[in-house]
């Protein structure tokens, strides 16, 4: 009676194997064509405008033909280096504050207070449904109202400090809020993919304190998601226009729009440069995140 079970199983397996190759090769071909088609359409959709923009940026409209003067003038354009450095500063500042704020929060949330996760998630995803223009309008009102109404209090000092000086802290703090959804999602996905509870307990069991567990075990294990969060935040800040423009700062995105009003080819070449920087960042993060990830079948 019992011996029948393996026999039936073996028979079933034999049938599968007999009919398998032809079926599987048919199955394999179809998605191949489908994938190629999707890739082609996506490729045209994404690369087409870039090729068009590049073609526009190198056209010699006076003499005809091709010239690269727009690219030659990019780095010497008036205001370029200031705008670029400001965007770099904003990006780095936003990434650092976001990670310093969110990494410990997310770890604590998952390890110690999982019941608060829905609340924090809702708060962090708010910027997705509140348009930046609404957010900046609110900030503008507070910045205008605060220093007068809160005179003599530490809050007044704070509100003045974030608007003055070479570093526009008000923009960085605003960007930290704007990038919260991306930081939250990246970190959350990373934490869910790693068994941080057991890793933490394993670390504690071996004698590590909470600091060592976080710095030597958890953060390295979450490297890819931390890098993803950093990249997304940086890319968002680098291309952000609305908030900076309304608050009358001129980072790279605002500079590109301003340049486009006087010189279209320069503006286009700057946009392509901006994309190139973003891609290079992505590549760098892929390289960093991909280390030690070689899969070996045992």
């Amino acid at each position: 009676m019992v011996a029948l079970t393996p026999t039936a199983g073996a028979g079933g397996l034999a049938e599968t194997q007999t009919g398998g190759p032809a079926t599987s090769s048919r199955r394999r071909r179809r998605p191949g064509i489908g994938r190629g088609l999707v890739l082609l359409i996506c490729g045209i959709y994404f690369i087409g405008p870039l090729v068009g923009a590049f073609w526009f940026s190198i056209q010699d409209k006076v003499h005809g033909g091709v010239q690269f003067s727009a690219y030659a003038h990019v780095f010497s354009a008036v205001g370029f280096s200031d705008a670029f450095m400001l965007s770099l500063k904003l990006g780095i500042g936003t990434v650092l504050i976001s990670l310093l704020l969110m990494v410990p929060t997310m770890l604590l949330l998952h390890l110690r207070a999982p019941k608060f996760r829905p609340v924090v998630e809702t708060l962090c995803l708010m910027p997705l449904v509140i348009p930046p223009v609404v957010l900046v309008a609110g900030v503008g009102v507070v910045l205008a109202w605060g220093p007068n109404q809160l005179a003599g209090t530490p809050l007044q000092t704070f509100l003045n400090a974030i608007q003055s000086g070479k570093t526009p802290w008000v923009l960085i703090l605003e960007y930290v809020v704007l990038t919260l959804p991306f930081t939250y999602r990246s970190l959350d996905a990373g934490i869910r993919s790693v068994d941080i509870h057991t890793l933490t307990e394993a670390g504690l069991n071996l004698g590590a304190g909470w600091g060592t567990v976080t710095m030597r075990i958890l953060l390295p294990s979450l490297r890819t998601s931390v890098l993803n969060a950093a990249f997304l935040s940086f890319a968002l800040v680098f291309g952000e226009y609305t908030v900076a423009s309304i608050l009358q700062y001129q980072p790279f995105a605002v500079f590109i729009v301003a340049a486009g009003q006087t010189e279209g080819q320069l503006s286009t070449s700057l946009s392509l440069l901006s994309l190139l920087i973003t891609w290079l960042l992505l590549l760098l993060i892929s390289l960093l995140g991909g280390r030690n990830s070689t899969k070996v079948d045992i």
């Binding site: 790693v194 057991t198 890793l199 307990e201 394993a202 069991n205 390295p220 294990s221 490297r223």
Partner: peptide, 12 residues
């Protein structure tokens, strides 16, 4: 010293 069900080796 503890050995866990889910291996729990430090992945990096």
């Amino acid at each position: 010293g503890m050995v866990f069900q889910s291996y729990s080796l430090f992945p990096t």
